[in-house]
Write a protein that binds this DNA or RNA. Structure first.
Lengths: 259, 259
DNA sequence: AAATAATGTTCGTCATTATCAAACAAAAGT
DNA sequence: ACTTTTGTTTGATAATGACGAACATTATTT
Protein backbone atom coordinates (compact mmCIF):
# COMPACT_ATOMS: atom_id res chain seq x y z
CA UNK A 1 0.00 0.00 0.00
CA UNK A 2 2.78 2.36 0.94
CA UNK A 3 6.15 2.11 -0.75
CA UNK A 4 8.95 1.12 1.58
CA UNK A 5 11.96 2.59 -0.17
CA UNK A 6 10.21 5.92 -0.71
CA UNK A 7 9.20 5.96 2.92
CA UNK A 8 12.82 5.45 3.90
CA UNK A 9 14.08 8.10 1.52
CA UNK A 10 11.64 10.66 2.91
CA UNK A 11 12.62 9.73 6.44
CA UNK A 12 16.22 10.45 5.54
CA UNK A 13 15.23 13.93 4.41
CA UNK A 14 13.38 14.66 7.63
CA UNK A 15 16.40 13.65 9.68
CA UNK A 16 18.11 16.84 8.58
CA UNK A 17 17.32 19.66 10.94
CA UNK A 18 18.49 23.02 12.03
CA UNK A 19 20.52 21.35 14.73
CA UNK A 20 21.83 18.60 12.48
CA UNK A 21 22.33 20.14 9.06
CA UNK A 22 24.91 17.66 7.80
CA UNK A 23 24.87 13.89 8.05
CA UNK A 24 27.02 11.04 6.75
CA UNK A 25 26.09 7.57 5.55
CA UNK A 26 27.17 5.80 8.73
CA UNK A 27 25.32 8.27 10.89
CA UNK A 28 22.17 7.84 8.82
CA UNK A 29 22.50 4.08 8.80
CA UNK A 30 22.75 4.15 12.57
CA UNK A 31 19.82 6.54 13.00
CA UNK A 32 17.58 4.48 10.75
CA UNK A 33 18.89 1.08 11.81
CA UNK A 34 19.56 0.03 8.24
CA UNK A 35 22.61 -1.40 6.50
CA UNK A 36 24.95 1.19 5.05
CA UNK A 37 24.55 -0.18 1.56
CA UNK A 38 20.83 0.37 1.63
CA UNK A 39 21.14 3.92 2.88
CA UNK A 40 23.75 4.62 0.26
CA UNK A 41 21.40 3.68 -2.56
CA UNK A 42 18.75 5.98 -1.19
CA UNK A 43 21.02 8.97 -0.65
CA UNK A 44 22.48 8.44 -4.09
CA UNK A 45 19.03 8.74 -5.61
CA UNK A 46 18.23 11.78 -3.49
CA UNK A 47 21.46 13.43 -4.61
CA UNK A 48 20.74 12.65 -8.26
CA UNK A 49 17.51 14.57 -8.01
CA UNK A 50 18.95 17.50 -6.08
CA UNK A 51 17.15 16.78 -2.83
CA UNK A 52 20.47 16.19 -1.13
CA UNK A 53 23.88 17.66 -1.77
CA UNK A 54 27.05 15.76 -1.18
CA UNK A 55 30.11 17.70 -0.15
CA UNK A 56 32.89 16.75 -2.53
CA UNK A 57 35.45 16.98 0.22
CA UNK A 58 33.86 15.44 3.27
CA UNK A 59 31.48 13.19 1.27
CA UNK A 60 28.78 14.05 3.76
CA UNK A 61 25.28 15.11 2.90
CA UNK A 62 23.13 18.17 3.42
CA UNK A 63 19.77 19.21 2.06
CA UNK A 64 19.80 20.07 -1.62
CA UNK A 65 18.61 23.17 -3.34
CA UNK A 66 15.74 21.35 -5.03
CA UNK A 67 13.98 21.56 -1.73
CA UNK A 68 14.42 25.29 -1.75
CA UNK A 69 12.87 25.43 -5.19
CA UNK A 70 9.90 23.35 -4.15
CA UNK A 71 9.54 25.47 -1.06
CA UNK A 72 9.23 28.54 -3.24
CA UNK A 73 6.67 26.85 -5.42
CA UNK A 74 4.71 25.87 -2.35
CA UNK A 75 4.87 29.30 -0.76
CA UNK A 76 3.74 30.98 -3.94
CA UNK A 77 1.08 28.38 -4.33
CA UNK A 78 -0.45 28.65 -0.92
CA UNK A 79 -3.27 31.04 -1.52
CA UNK A 80 -3.30 32.23 2.05
CA UNK A 81 0.34 33.15 1.89
CA UNK A 82 -0.08 35.12 -1.30
CA UNK A 83 -3.07 37.07 -0.12
CA UNK A 84 -1.75 37.64 3.36
CA UNK A 85 1.66 39.01 2.43
CA UNK A 86 0.59 42.61 1.84
CA UNK A 87 -1.68 43.11 4.87
CA UNK A 88 0.80 41.28 7.07
CA UNK A 89 3.60 43.63 6.08
CA UNK A 90 1.44 46.66 6.66
CA UNK A 91 0.39 45.42 10.07
CA UNK A 92 3.94 44.93 11.23
CA UNK A 93 4.95 48.31 9.88
CA UNK A 94 2.06 50.15 11.53
CA UNK A 95 2.61 48.50 14.89
CA UNK A 96 6.37 48.14 14.79
CA UNK A 97 6.11 44.53 15.89
CA UNK A 98 6.64 41.08 14.43
CA UNK A 99 3.68 39.75 12.51
CA UNK A 100 3.34 36.14 11.41
CA UNK A 101 1.01 33.91 9.45
CA UNK A 102 0.43 30.31 10.48
CA UNK A 103 -1.44 27.41 8.91
CA UNK A 104 -3.03 24.46 10.66
CA UNK A 105 -1.50 21.21 9.49
CA UNK A 106 -2.38 17.97 11.17
CA UNK A 107 -2.08 18.79 14.83
CA UNK A 108 0.33 21.67 14.81
CA UNK A 109 0.91 25.02 13.20
CA UNK A 110 3.34 25.84 10.42
CA UNK A 111 4.58 29.39 10.19
CA UNK A 112 4.56 30.40 6.55
CA UNK A 113 5.24 34.11 6.76
CA UNK A 114 7.31 36.25 9.05
CA UNK A 115 7.52 40.00 8.73
CA UNK A 116 9.41 42.37 10.91
CA UNK A 117 9.26 46.15 10.44
CA UNK A 118 12.88 47.13 10.87
CA UNK A 119 14.59 44.93 8.32
CA UNK A 120 16.01 42.44 10.74
CA UNK A 121 18.50 40.40 8.76
CA UNK A 122 17.92 36.99 10.20
CA UNK A 123 14.62 36.59 11.96
CA UNK A 124 15.16 34.53 15.07
CA UNK A 125 12.74 31.67 14.54
CA UNK A 126 12.19 31.66 18.25
CA UNK A 127 9.73 28.82 18.20
CA UNK A 128 10.80 27.19 15.00
CA UNK A 129 8.94 26.83 11.76
CA UNK A 130 6.47 24.39 13.28
CA UNK A 131 4.96 25.41 16.58
CA UNK A 132 2.56 23.99 19.11
CA UNK A 133 -1.03 25.12 18.86
CA UNK A 134 -1.93 25.15 22.55
CA UNK A 135 0.66 27.71 23.59
CA UNK A 136 0.67 30.24 20.78
CA UNK A 137 -1.57 33.08 19.74
CA UNK A 138 -1.80 31.74 16.22
CA UNK A 139 -2.49 28.19 17.34
CA UNK A 140 -5.20 29.09 19.83
CA UNK A 141 -6.87 31.45 17.39
CA UNK A 142 -7.13 28.55 14.97
CA UNK A 143 -8.21 25.96 17.55
CA UNK A 144 -10.98 28.21 18.78
CA UNK A 145 -12.64 28.29 15.39
CA UNK A 146 -11.89 24.77 14.23
CA UNK A 147 -14.70 22.21 14.08
CA UNK A 148 -15.38 20.27 17.25
CA UNK A 149 -14.32 16.90 15.92
CA UNK A 150 -10.87 18.09 14.95
CA UNK A 151 -10.41 19.90 18.25
CA UNK A 152 -11.39 16.82 20.22
CA UNK A 153 -8.96 14.73 18.20
CA UNK A 154 -6.29 17.31 18.84
CA UNK A 155 -6.92 17.41 22.57
CA UNK A 156 -6.85 13.63 22.91
CA UNK A 157 -3.66 13.23 20.92
CA UNK A 158 -1.67 16.13 22.28
CA UNK A 159 0.55 16.12 25.31
CA UNK A 160 0.72 19.61 26.68
CA UNK A 161 4.14 20.24 28.13
CA UNK A 162 5.15 23.48 29.79
CA UNK A 163 7.71 25.77 28.21
CA UNK A 164 7.28 28.54 30.75
CA UNK A 165 5.51 28.77 34.09
CA UNK A 166 2.54 30.28 32.26
CA UNK A 167 2.05 27.56 29.66
CA UNK A 168 -1.43 26.08 29.81
CA UNK A 169 -1.06 22.35 30.44
CA UNK A 170 -4.57 21.44 31.58
CA UNK A 171 -7.09 20.62 28.89
CA UNK A 172 -10.02 22.09 30.78
CA UNK A 173 -8.17 25.40 31.09
CA UNK A 174 -7.45 25.39 27.39
CA UNK A 175 -11.08 24.70 26.50
CA UNK A 176 -12.15 27.64 28.65
CA UNK A 177 -9.58 29.82 26.97
CA UNK A 178 -10.89 28.80 23.56
CA UNK A 179 -14.41 29.82 24.62
CA UNK A 180 -13.14 33.25 25.64
CA UNK A 181 -11.30 33.54 22.32
CA UNK A 182 -14.45 32.73 20.40
CA UNK A 183 -16.26 35.47 22.28
CA UNK A 184 -13.71 38.23 21.86
CA UNK A 185 -12.67 37.13 18.41
CA UNK A 186 -8.96 37.01 19.10
CA UNK A 187 -6.47 35.02 21.16
CA UNK A 188 -3.76 36.22 23.48
CA UNK A 189 -0.61 34.46 24.55
CA UNK A 190 1.07 35.87 27.63
CA UNK A 191 4.48 34.22 27.85
CA UNK A 192 2.98 30.80 27.28
CA UNK A 193 5.64 29.66 24.85
CA UNK A 194 8.57 31.99 25.39
CA UNK A 195 9.54 34.02 28.44
CA UNK A 196 8.87 37.70 27.94
CA UNK A 197 7.01 37.22 24.69
CA UNK A 198 3.42 38.34 24.28
CA UNK A 199 1.19 37.71 21.33
CA UNK A 200 -2.21 38.51 19.85
CA UNK A 201 -3.65 36.10 17.29
CA UNK A 202 -6.73 36.25 15.10
CA UNK A 203 -8.23 33.61 12.81
CA UNK A 204 -8.41 33.86 9.05
CA UNK A 205 -11.28 32.24 7.18
CA UNK A 206 -11.45 30.89 3.66
CA UNK A 207 -14.15 30.96 1.03
CA UNK A 208 -16.12 28.19 2.72
CA UNK A 209 -15.98 29.93 6.06
CA UNK A 210 -13.50 27.46 7.54
CA UNK A 211 -10.38 28.50 9.41
CA UNK A 212 -7.54 28.65 6.91
CA UNK A 213 -4.96 29.86 9.39
CA UNK A 214 -4.26 32.78 11.66
CA UNK A 215 -2.26 35.96 11.90
CA UNK A 216 -0.38 37.08 14.96
CA UNK A 217 1.38 40.10 16.30
CA UNK A 218 4.07 39.47 18.86
CA UNK A 219 6.72 41.26 20.83
CA UNK A 220 7.75 42.07 24.39
CA UNK A 221 4.80 41.29 26.70
CA UNK A 222 4.48 44.76 28.12
CA UNK A 223 4.38 46.25 24.64
CA UNK A 224 1.75 43.83 23.38
CA UNK A 225 -0.45 42.94 26.34
CA UNK A 226 -0.80 46.24 28.21
CA UNK A 227 -2.90 49.31 27.76
CA UNK A 228 -2.43 49.18 24.01
CA UNK A 229 -3.92 45.69 23.72
CA UNK A 230 -7.29 47.02 22.67
CA UNK A 231 -5.84 49.07 19.84
CA UNK A 232 -3.47 46.34 18.72
CA UNK A 233 -6.16 43.67 18.82
CA UNK A 234 -8.28 45.92 16.64
CA UNK A 235 -5.42 46.19 14.17
CA UNK A 236 -4.88 42.45 14.13
CA UNK A 237 -8.57 41.70 13.76
CA UNK A 238 -9.07 44.12 10.90
CA UNK A 239 -6.00 42.73 9.16
CA UNK A 240 -7.29 39.20 9.61
CA UNK A 241 -10.67 40.28 8.26
CA UNK A 242 -9.03 41.90 5.28
CA UNK A 243 -7.14 38.72 4.46
CA UNK A 244 -10.27 36.62 4.90
CA UNK A 245 -12.02 38.94 2.49
CA UNK A 246 -9.18 38.49 0.00
CA UNK A 247 -9.70 34.75 0.32
CA UNK A 248 -13.34 35.18 -0.61
CA UNK A 249 -14.92 35.09 2.83
CA UNK A 250 -17.83 37.44 3.40
CA UNK A 251 -19.40 36.76 6.81
CA UNK A 252 -22.54 38.78 6.06
CA UNK A 253 -23.31 36.65 3.04
CA UNK A 254 -22.54 33.44 4.90
CA UNK A 255 -24.86 34.25 7.77
CA UNK A 256 -27.84 35.31 5.70
CA UNK A 257 -27.55 32.61 3.07
CA UNK A 258 -26.41 29.55 5.03
CA UNK A 259 -29.40 28.86 7.31
CA UNK B 1 22.50 1.57 -7.98
CA UNK B 2 19.77 4.17 -7.90
CA UNK B 3 16.42 3.28 -6.42
CA UNK B 4 13.62 3.28 -8.96
CA UNK B 5 10.63 3.91 -6.76
CA UNK B 6 12.37 6.75 -4.95
CA UNK B 7 13.36 8.23 -8.27
CA UNK B 8 9.75 8.16 -9.37
CA UNK B 9 8.49 9.67 -6.14
CA UNK B 10 10.93 12.55 -6.41
CA UNK B 11 9.96 13.08 -10.02
CA UNK B 12 6.38 13.39 -8.92
CA UNK B 13 7.36 16.15 -6.51
CA UNK B 14 9.21 18.07 -9.18
CA UNK B 15 6.20 17.96 -11.47
CA UNK B 16 4.49 20.46 -9.23
CA UNK B 17 5.30 23.97 -10.30
CA UNK B 18 4.15 27.50 -10.02
CA UNK B 19 2.11 27.03 -13.15
CA UNK B 20 0.77 23.62 -12.14
CA UNK B 21 0.27 23.71 -8.39
CA UNK B 22 -2.30 20.93 -8.17
CA UNK B 23 -2.27 17.55 -9.87
CA UNK B 24 -4.43 14.43 -9.78
CA UNK B 25 -3.52 10.77 -10.05
CA UNK B 26 -4.59 10.41 -13.65
CA UNK B 27 -2.74 13.52 -14.70
CA UNK B 28 0.40 12.31 -12.96
CA UNK B 29 0.07 8.85 -14.42
CA UNK B 30 -0.18 10.40 -17.86
CA UNK B 31 2.75 12.75 -17.33
CA UNK B 32 4.99 9.98 -16.06
CA UNK B 33 3.66 7.27 -18.36
CA UNK B 34 3.02 4.89 -15.49
CA UNK B 35 -0.03 2.89 -14.45
CA UNK B 36 -2.37 4.73 -12.10
CA UNK B 37 -1.97 2.11 -9.43
CA UNK B 38 1.75 2.62 -9.26
CA UNK B 39 1.43 6.36 -9.02
CA UNK B 40 -1.18 5.97 -6.35
CA UNK B 41 1.16 3.99 -4.13
CA UNK B 42 3.83 6.65 -4.48
CA UNK B 43 1.56 9.62 -3.80
CA UNK B 44 0.09 7.78 -0.85
CA UNK B 45 3.54 7.46 0.66
CA UNK B 46 4.34 11.09 -0.07
CA UNK B 47 1.12 12.18 1.60
CA UNK B 48 1.83 10.01 4.64
CA UNK B 49 5.05 11.89 5.17
CA UNK B 50 3.63 15.34 4.54
CA UNK B 51 5.43 15.95 1.26
CA UNK B 52 2.11 16.09 -0.52
CA UNK B 53 -1.29 17.18 0.63
CA UNK B 54 -4.47 15.66 -0.67
CA UNK B 55 -7.53 17.86 -0.85
CA UNK B 56 -10.29 16.04 0.96
CA UNK B 57 -12.86 17.34 -1.46
CA UNK B 58 -11.28 17.11 -4.87
CA UNK B 59 -8.89 14.26 -3.90
CA UNK B 60 -6.19 16.03 -5.86
CA UNK B 61 -2.69 16.67 -4.66
CA UNK B 62 -0.54 19.68 -3.96
CA UNK B 63 2.82 20.10 -2.30
CA UNK B 64 2.79 19.46 1.43
CA UNK B 65 4.00 21.66 4.21
CA UNK B 66 6.85 19.32 5.06
CA UNK B 67 8.61 20.79 2.09
CA UNK B 68 8.19 24.24 3.54
CA UNK B 69 9.73 23.03 6.76
CA UNK B 70 12.70 21.49 5.02
CA UNK B 71 13.07 24.64 2.97
CA UNK B 72 13.38 26.63 6.17
CA UNK B 73 15.95 24.23 7.53
CA UNK B 74 17.91 24.51 4.32
CA UNK B 75 17.74 28.30 4.18
CA UNK B 76 18.87 28.61 7.77
CA UNK B 77 21.56 26.08 7.07
CA UNK B 78 23.03 27.73 4.04
CA UNK B 79 25.76 29.78 5.56
CA UNK B 80 25.81 32.20 2.69
CA UNK B 81 22.16 32.97 3.09
CA UNK B 82 22.50 33.65 6.78
CA UNK B 83 25.49 35.88 6.47
CA UNK B 84 24.26 37.71 3.41
CA UNK B 85 20.81 38.64 4.68
CA UNK B 86 21.85 41.79 6.57
CA UNK B 87 24.17 43.35 4.00
CA UNK B 88 21.75 42.45 1.21
CA UNK B 89 18.91 44.29 2.94
CA UNK B 90 21.05 47.33 3.55
CA UNK B 91 22.18 47.42 -0.05
CA UNK B 92 18.65 47.38 -1.38
CA UNK B 93 17.58 50.04 1.10
CA UNK B 94 20.47 52.35 0.27
CA UNK B 95 20.00 52.04 -3.47
CA UNK B 96 16.25 51.66 -3.58
CA UNK B 97 16.57 48.71 -5.92
CA UNK B 98 16.05 44.95 -5.81
CA UNK B 99 18.97 43.01 -4.43
CA UNK B 100 19.32 39.26 -4.73
CA UNK B 101 21.64 36.47 -3.67
CA UNK B 102 22.27 33.50 -5.93
CA UNK B 103 24.14 30.23 -5.50
CA UNK B 104 25.78 28.13 -8.17
CA UNK B 105 24.27 24.68 -8.29
CA UNK B 106 25.20 22.27 -11.01
CA UNK B 107 24.99 24.38 -14.12
CA UNK B 108 22.53 27.05 -13.11
CA UNK B 109 21.88 29.58 -10.40
CA UNK B 110 19.40 29.31 -7.57
CA UNK B 111 18.13 32.54 -6.08
CA UNK B 112 18.08 32.15 -2.33
CA UNK B 113 17.39 35.67 -1.17
CA UNK B 114 15.34 38.49 -2.58
CA UNK B 115 15.08 41.85 -0.92
CA UNK B 116 13.21 44.86 -2.13
CA UNK B 117 13.33 48.21 -0.30
CA UNK B 118 9.68 49.24 -0.39
CA UNK B 119 7.99 46.29 1.25
CA UNK B 120 6.55 44.78 -1.89
CA UNK B 121 4.12 42.10 -0.73
CA UNK B 122 4.74 39.45 -3.31
CA UNK B 123 8.00 39.82 -5.18
CA UNK B 124 7.51 39.01 -8.81
CA UNK B 125 10.00 36.21 -9.39
CA UNK B 126 10.59 37.60 -12.83
CA UNK B 127 13.12 34.98 -13.81
CA UNK B 128 12.02 32.26 -11.46
CA UNK B 129 13.82 30.73 -8.54
CA UNK B 130 16.34 29.00 -10.82
CA UNK B 131 17.90 31.16 -13.49
CA UNK B 132 20.39 30.76 -16.32
CA UNK B 133 23.96 31.72 -15.58
CA UNK B 134 24.93 33.09 -19.00
CA UNK B 135 22.35 35.84 -19.08
CA UNK B 136 22.24 37.17 -15.55
CA UNK B 137 24.44 39.44 -13.50
CA UNK B 138 24.60 36.92 -10.70
CA UNK B 139 25.35 34.03 -13.02
CA UNK B 140 28.10 35.79 -14.96
CA UNK B 141 29.69 37.10 -11.79
CA UNK B 142 29.94 33.51 -10.60
CA UNK B 143 31.10 32.04 -13.89
CA UNK B 144 33.88 34.59 -14.18
CA UNK B 145 35.47 33.43 -10.95
CA UNK B 146 34.73 29.72 -11.16
CA UNK B 147 37.56 27.26 -11.87
CA UNK B 148 38.32 26.61 -15.52
CA UNK B 149 37.26 22.99 -15.52
CA UNK B 150 33.77 23.74 -14.26
CA UNK B 151 33.38 26.63 -16.69
CA UNK B 152 34.43 24.48 -19.62
CA UNK B 153 31.96 21.80 -18.55
CA UNK B 154 29.28 24.44 -18.28
CA UNK B 155 30.00 25.88 -21.71
CA UNK B 156 29.96 22.49 -23.38
CA UNK B 157 26.74 21.39 -21.75
CA UNK B 158 24.75 24.59 -22.01
CA UNK B 159 22.59 25.68 -24.89
CA UNK B 160 22.42 29.44 -24.92
CA UNK B 161 19.03 30.53 -26.10
CA UNK B 162 18.05 34.17 -26.48
CA UNK B 163 15.41 35.72 -24.26
CA UNK B 164 15.88 39.23 -25.60
CA UNK B 165 17.72 40.67 -28.61
CA UNK B 166 20.63 41.40 -26.27
CA UNK B 167 21.09 37.93 -24.83
CA UNK B 168 24.59 36.59 -25.42
CA UNK B 169 24.27 33.35 -27.37
CA UNK B 170 27.81 32.92 -28.67
CA UNK B 171 30.28 31.18 -26.41
CA UNK B 172 33.23 33.22 -27.56
CA UNK B 173 31.38 36.42 -26.71
CA UNK B 174 30.58 35.07 -23.28
CA UNK B 175 34.18 34.10 -22.62
CA UNK B 176 35.28 37.63 -23.53
CA UNK B 177 32.65 39.05 -21.24
CA UNK B 178 33.88 36.86 -18.41
CA UNK B 179 37.40 38.20 -18.93
CA UNK B 180 36.13 41.78 -18.66
CA UNK B 181 34.22 40.83 -15.53
CA UNK B 182 37.34 39.36 -13.95
CA UNK B 183 39.17 42.61 -14.67
CA UNK B 184 36.59 45.04 -13.33
CA UNK B 185 35.47 42.75 -10.54
CA UNK B 186 31.78 42.91 -11.31
CA UNK B 187 29.35 41.79 -14.01
CA UNK B 188 26.68 43.75 -15.80
CA UNK B 189 23.57 42.49 -17.49
CA UNK B 190 21.93 44.92 -19.89
CA UNK B 191 18.54 43.45 -20.78
CA UNK B 192 20.08 40.06 -21.45
CA UNK B 193 17.39 38.12 -19.66
CA UNK B 194 14.44 40.48 -19.37
CA UNK B 195 13.51 43.47 -21.50
CA UNK B 196 14.14 46.72 -19.69
CA UNK B 197 15.93 45.09 -16.79
CA UNK B 198 19.51 45.98 -15.92
CA UNK B 199 21.68 44.34 -13.35
CA UNK B 200 25.04 44.56 -11.62
CA UNK B 201 26.45 41.39 -10.08
CA UNK B 202 29.47 40.73 -7.91
CA UNK B 203 30.95 37.43 -6.71
CA UNK B 204 31.05 36.29 -3.12
CA UNK B 205 33.90 34.10 -1.92
CA UNK B 206 34.02 31.57 0.87
CA UNK B 207 36.67 30.66 3.41
CA UNK B 208 38.67 28.70 0.85
CA UNK B 209 38.59 31.54 -1.62
CA UNK B 210 36.17 29.78 -3.95
CA UNK B 211 33.06 31.44 -5.37
CA UNK B 212 30.19 30.66 -3.06
CA UNK B 213 27.67 32.70 -4.98
CA UNK B 214 26.96 36.24 -6.02
CA UNK B 215 24.93 39.29 -5.14
CA UNK B 216 23.11 41.44 -7.62
CA UNK B 217 21.35 44.74 -7.81
CA UNK B 218 18.73 45.05 -10.49
CA UNK B 219 16.09 47.43 -11.74
CA UNK B 220 15.15 49.50 -14.78
CA UNK B 221 18.15 49.62 -17.15
CA UNK B 222 18.48 53.37 -17.20
CA UNK B 223 18.50 53.49 -13.41
CA UNK B 224 21.13 50.79 -13.05
CA UNK B 225 23.39 51.04 -16.09
CA UNK B 226 23.76 54.78 -16.62
CA UNK B 227 25.83 57.48 -15.03
CA UNK B 228 25.26 56.01 -11.61
CA UNK B 229 26.75 52.65 -12.55
CA UNK B 230 30.10 53.52 -11.00
CA UNK B 231 28.56 54.40 -7.66
CA UNK B 232 26.19 51.44 -7.68
CA UNK B 233 28.92 48.99 -8.69
CA UNK B 234 30.96 50.30 -5.79
CA UNK B 235 28.06 49.64 -3.46
CA UNK B 236 27.55 46.14 -4.80
CA UNK B 237 31.25 45.33 -4.64
CA UNK B 238 31.66 46.53 -1.09
CA UNK B 239 28.56 44.59 -0.04
CA UNK B 240 29.90 41.47 -1.72
CA UNK B 241 33.24 41.98 -0.01
CA UNK B 242 31.52 42.39 3.33
CA UNK B 243 29.65 39.13 2.89
CA UNK B 244 32.82 37.35 1.77
CA UNK B 245 34.49 38.63 4.90
CA UNK B 246 31.60 37.30 7.00
CA UNK B 247 32.16 33.94 5.34
CA UNK B 248 35.77 33.98 6.44
CA UNK B 249 37.42 35.15 3.24
CA UNK B 250 40.33 37.55 3.64
CA UNK B 251 41.97 38.16 0.25
CA UNK B 252 45.07 39.73 1.74
CA UNK B 253 45.83 36.62 3.71
CA UNK B 254 45.07 34.35 0.80
CA UNK B 255 47.40 36.17 -1.55
CA UNK B 256 50.37 36.31 0.77
CA UNK B 257 50.04 32.81 2.11
CA UNK B 258 48.92 30.80 -0.91
CA UNK B 259 51.88 31.02 -3.27
C1' DA C 1 55.13 6.45 11.64
C1' DA C 2 52.43 2.51 12.15
C1' DA C 3 48.25 0.80 13.29
C1' DT C 4 43.74 1.08 14.17
C1' DA C 5 39.25 2.64 13.61
C1' DA C 6 35.79 4.69 11.08
C1' DT C 7 34.23 6.44 6.90
C1' DG C 8 31.81 6.17 2.07
C1' DT C 9 31.37 2.94 -1.69
C1' DT C 10 30.85 -1.40 -4.53
C1' DC C 11 29.09 -5.98 -5.56
C1' DG C 12 26.41 -10.46 -6.27
C1' DT C 13 22.84 -13.16 -4.44
C1' DC C 14 18.15 -13.96 -2.66
C1' DA C 15 13.44 -13.13 -1.63
C1' DT C 16 11.13 -9.43 -0.45
C1' DT C 17 8.72 -5.84 -2.60
C1' DA C 18 6.84 -2.90 -5.67
C1' DT C 19 4.98 -2.96 -10.17
C1' DC C 20 1.49 -3.92 -13.32
C1' DA C 21 -3.13 -4.46 -15.55
C1' DA C 22 -7.64 -5.00 -14.90
C1' DA C 23 -11.71 -4.15 -12.25
C1' DC C 24 -13.90 -1.05 -8.80
C1' DA C 25 -16.76 2.77 -6.98
C1' DA C 26 -17.74 7.68 -7.22
C1' DA C 27 -18.09 11.78 -9.28
C1' DA C 28 -18.20 15.03 -13.23
C1' DG C 29 -19.70 16.19 -17.55
C1' DT C 30 -22.83 15.56 -21.48
C1' DA D 1 -29.84 8.64 -17.84
C1' DC D 2 -25.72 7.86 -19.93
C1' DT D 3 -20.95 8.22 -20.79
C1' DT D 4 -16.52 9.49 -19.43
C1' DT D 5 -13.19 10.45 -16.14
C1' DT D 6 -11.76 10.46 -11.67
C1' DG D 7 -9.23 8.08 -7.43
C1' DT D 8 -8.82 3.62 -5.35
C1' DT D 9 -8.37 -1.44 -4.59
C1' DT D 10 -6.81 -6.02 -5.72
C1' DG D 11 -3.81 -10.16 -6.47
C1' DA D 12 -0.36 -12.55 -9.42
C1' DT D 13 4.26 -12.04 -11.33
C1' DA D 14 9.01 -11.11 -11.61
C1' DA D 15 11.66 -7.41 -11.44
C1' DT D 16 13.66 -4.81 -8.02
C1' DG D 17 15.75 -3.13 -4.12
C1' DA D 18 17.59 -4.96 0.33
C1' DC D 19 21.10 -7.18 2.47
C1' DG D 20 25.88 -8.11 4.46
C1' DA D 21 30.36 -8.71 3.53
C1' DA D 22 34.39 -6.86 1.39
C1' DC D 23 36.44 -2.62 -0.71
C1' DA D 24 39.23 1.62 -0.79
C1' DT D 25 40.03 6.13 1.80
C1' DT D 26 40.47 9.00 5.14
C1' DA D 27 40.78 10.21 10.40
C1' DT D 28 42.29 9.17 14.55
C1' DT D 29 45.05 6.96 17.84
C1' DT D 30 49.06 4.60 19.52
Amino acid sequence: MTVQSVQRALTILTLFSHRRPVLGISELSRLMDLPKGTVHGLTRTLVDHGFLNQDEQTRKYRLGLKIHELGIVLAGTLELNQKAAGPCHQLSRRTGQLSRIGIWDGGSVVITLNTHPNPMPVLPHQVGPRIHAYCSGIGKAILAFLDDKTVRQYLSRTKMTAFTPLTITVKKKLIEDLKTIRQQGYATDREEAVQGLGCIGAPIFDRQGRVAGAISLSGPVNQILGEQTGVLAGEVLSTAAEISRLLGYFPAIMETVEP
